[in-house]
């Protein structure tokens, strides 16, 4: 299914996705928006892993399994993050990160 598509295409796509995720991470003020950006970043990494696995080491399974574990970690992270977000919302009545600035000097 991937004949005629060079590896670099996948990598470029993944890096675009990665940096778009970074952009979102830096500019979003809504905590849930930030969480979604992080999901994007994780996905781009998954694409990278799988592309490398398929193109460079087709006899191995590491890429597959790492993606699998990343998905599991992402799921765990999303669950905990959402729990935290809900708690923050309860405490501050907002999910805007600029208002959650108790670390400020």
């Amino acid at each position: 299914m991937n004949n005629g598509i060079p590896l670099q295409y996948f990598l470029i796509l993944a890096s675009i996705m990665f940096f778009v995720g970074i952009y979102g991470f830096l500019t979003r003020r809504n905590l849930i928006g930030i969480l979604m950006s992080v999901e994007l970043i994780l996905n781009s990494v998954n694409i990278n892993f799988l592309a490398f696995n398929r193109y460079l080491y087709p006899d191995r399974l590491e890429g597959l399994f790492f993606s699998l574990f990343i998905i599991a970690v992402a799921a765990a992270e999303a669950a905990v993050a959402i729990a935290i977000i809900i708690n923050i919302y309860r405490r501050f009545s907002t999910v805007n990160v600029e208002h959650v600035n108790e670390m400020r000097f």
Binding site: F25, L26, T27, V97, N101, E102, M103, R104
Partner: peptide, 17 residues
């Protein structure tokens, strides 16, 4: 320089990245 310690996570993230 205490202004750097703004508590704004995204500013830290920007500097980090």
């Amino acid at each position: 320089i205490r202004e750097f310690q703004s508590g704004q996570l995204q500013k830290y993230g920007f500097v980090f990245i």
